[in-house]
Design a binder for these strands. Sequence first.
DNA 1: TACCAGGAGAGCG
DNA 2: CGCTCTCATGGT
Length: 307
Amino acid sequence: MRSANQEPVAARTNASSMILLPVRNYDLEATLDSGQSFRWRPDNGSWTGVIGRRRVRLTGTRDGIRAETTGPAADWQWLHHYLQTGADLDAVLESFPDDAPMRDAVAACRGLRILRQDPWECLASFILSSTKQIIQIRQIIALLCERFGEPLAGSPDEPPAFAFPSPEKIASVTEAGLRACKMGFRAPHLLAAAQQIAGGKFDLGRLCHLPLEEARMELMTLRGVGGKIADCVLLFAHGFDGAFPVDVWVERALRELYFPRRQVGGKRLRHFAATHFGPHAGYAQQYLFHYMRTKFTSPGSTPNEIA
DNA sequence: TACCAGGAGAGCG
DNA sequence: CGCTCTCATGGT
């Protein structure tokens, strides 16, 4: 990826660092705004967000991605890792089943990627996602970070930014404090997960060394974590490309695109999802999700209106 | 006002 | 298994 003629060009001032990531076929908007991360917001043609303890601004350019971050950056491995710039997207797309629904979904958002997020932030975010719209999930997480996350350094003209609060921090907060972030009945779930992780009774880092099914069962022992949320965490944070989260959008996509006007049981649908999409099924899922969401979300429509 | 949101969990037949 | 209900909150 780093042949001599495309070595990234980095620059640095005392206030911030900048780099150009040479990557082809990377749709920044589709990737950052497709419901896998909830911390990015559009900003004058760029995207601003927080990765770990860094403020980050990303801009799509003709040759790749321009990235800026506050403070010095000795290396950018953390950013390559988060954005998965080294992933072979062509090989992933090649592995998809050659049928009309997948071709349409890929054509609708070519360049959509899957990020590699921090496991705790991802788990916490998806515990909070249950029966919420994406815009509301963003609001809850923003409140959570403002109240309990560490403030991040930045120049005075920038709006304040906060790190995602650690499990230890969340574990030290009361349920009422969490409910004040508008997360409702999800508060005790988040609190219990934070306490288990902070107390060393649940090891998130161990999951990536387990087979997919075992890691999934392990996650599902947490209260508030069912199959769908477990799959999201495994796919978006642990690198399990085979994890296939099925939510209302994807279930609708499967029914309408693959089984039009046919009654299909949930069991058969899950079996189909688990066998039809190949080794990178999780990517296929994200393409279907984004395809359905962009196709029917103009403006204000909801999935239940589509039928 | 009524209905629903990238669900999970529990109760029931 | 499949269905139904509840959970909390904000938006349409």
